[in-house]
Every structure is written in structure tokens, then in C-alpha cells.
Amino acid sequence: MGAVRVSGLKVNYRVRGSGDPLVLLHGGFGLDSRSWGRQLDTLDDEFMVVAWDAPGCGGSDDPPEWFRMEDYADSLAGFVRALGLTNPHILGLSFGGALALAFYARHPTVPRSLILAGAYAGWAGSLPADEVQRRVQRISREVTQPPGEWLPKYLAGMLTESAPREMAEQTLALMSDIHPRASLTMLLAMANADHRGILPDIEVPTLVLHGELDVRSPLAVGKELHRKIPASQLVVLPGVGHLSNVEAADAFNFEVRTFLRSLNGPMG
């Protein structure tokens, strides 16, 4: 575990391996760099795998309450600079996928490629307005309560019913380390984000990787990202839910590795 300071905030991260840098951006709901365990342990044989704790998650400092997706994106840019990463591949899941798009919009010369897993173009950019409002109202009401009282109800949206019990318990334990106030900040950033405008202008290789049974970001959302991003690839993982990197880690890692290997040699 390492840490750097970015715009006055301590940002924790995990790093494994060597090679072309691959930066992993986790989802919300208390997730952090630990949710990428199977990726850190597997992809490190070929890549320098870096997983951050976004501001307000894991061991990182909470951001100001006014933070929005653009601010997370600028923090990510500072993080990449602090670690001296040159043209990293950016892999974002859920909130991390929306963040990857915001990062590209603000810093388009930095990413070498994008991998969008269970992603959104922000909630405002991918979901009906009434669904966004429902999610904001529900989460705003529940997130300040003890995690054990409300987080278990969200687990069904993260993994399918066929996920092993131990996997579900480990995921719930990780999510229980949630930072309540910072999660409200992240919630509003995600709810207001609308990155549809950038999609047709993405010029780096992009993989849209989606679980077939994702109920948080339905497959139709992934298909729409694929349709609007020029020359993007769409891979659907059958029988898998929202946290595809956890529930189908082997298949997820295979598709990530296959995509990255398909790109020509390192830039620069």
C-alpha cells in the first residue's frame, strides 16, 4: 500500500507488477482498491497494475462536499502524474467507468485506452431521470444509517444469486467500510454526471465489458456506450452481474488481457 498527496488530499493505492501501466478505478458503495484483488494478483505478470482508493474511499482522505465528477477526474490526473505513469490504460467499473469518461473528457492525451466495465455515462447520461431521483433519494436516506442495516439489501444488485456465499460475504464486509459523508458526495457526483457528449469524440481504443445480468447498469446501458463510442468493442460476460471483476474474475481478466494485447506496442 502506498500513498501520495493530490491537491491536499492523501490518496492511497496498491501497485503490483511491471510493464505498461494499467490503472483500476473501483465503483462506489464502499468499494476501494481491495475490490481489485483478483486483478492485482493475476494481471501483474504482464502489466504494472495500479488500483487507487478514490477520495473518500478506503484509506484516502474525504474530498470536499462540493466535489463533482470533474474534480474526481482532476484528482485522478494528479494521481497519475504523482506516480509518473505515462499513457496508462484506464479501467473503470461502475462509478469508475463514469470517472474514466470524465477523465478522458478533461485529459484526453493521457489515457492510452479505456476499459468500461458495468459503466455509465454518469447516471444522468445513462438512466431515466425518475430512476436517478429514486436512487438518490433512497441512498441519501440510508447511507447515514449503520451499514449492517442497509448495505445487505444492495448486495443483490452487485452479484447474482448464483455467486458463492463466501464471495457475497467478503464483498459485503468490504462495502461495510463505507465513508458515509463522502459517499453522499460521490452519489451526487454520479447522479449529476452526463458524459454522453464526449462519447462520439473518444479516439483511443475502448472496450465495453458488461455483465449479462447486471441490474445496476443494465446491459442496454453498455450497448448504448458501445454504439456511441467509435470503433469500440463490446464483450458481454454471460450470467454475470454488476461486479463482474469479482463474480467472474477469470473471464474478466482474460478479456482485459486479450484487449490490451491486441493494442500495438507501447506509446512514446
Rank of each mutant, 00 (worst) to 15 (best):
P218V: 06
G125R: 12
M175F: 05
Y120R: 09
L199R: 07
R5A: 14
V235M: 06
L9E: 00
W66K: 01
G222K: 13
M267I: 05
D74A: 08
P218T: 07
L114T: 12
L159W: 03
F29K: 00
L219H: 11
T171F: 05
S262M: 01
P266E: 14
L213Q: 10
A189H: 13
P180W: 06
Y72L: 04
V6D: 01
E212H: 12
G27S: 10
Q145D: 09
T86N: 09
L127P: 02
L209N: 04
H226T: 00
D32K: 05
F67D: 01
H195M: 10
G241K: 06
F103V: 11
D45S: 12
G148T: 07
L234W: 03
G92W: 05
A173I: 02
C57F: 13
G56Q: 05
V15Y: 00
A189V: 02
E203G: 11
L76M: 04
P238E: 08
D74Y: 00
A124R: 12
F259V: 13
L93K: 00
A54R: 05
L22V: 15
L127N: 08
V208S: 04
V215L: 15
G211F: 06
S75V: 03
E70L: 08
L207C: 08
D45T: 12
R16A: 15
R261K: 15
I198E: 03
S18P: 00
S140L: 05
M69S: 11
L101N: 11
G265Q: 02
R227C: 01
F259C: 06
A191W: 00
L25E: 02
N12P: 00
R134W: 10
L116D: 03
E149Y: 06
G268D: 13
M186L: 06
L243H: 08
R106P: 01
D32A: 03
V11N: 04
M69K: 05
K223L: 04
D71T: 09
D45N: 14
V50A: 13
L263R: 12
L219I: 15
Y72Q: 02
M267Q: 06
H210G: 07
L234K: 08
E149I: 04
I178F: 02
R141C: 12
G17A: 14
C57H: 14
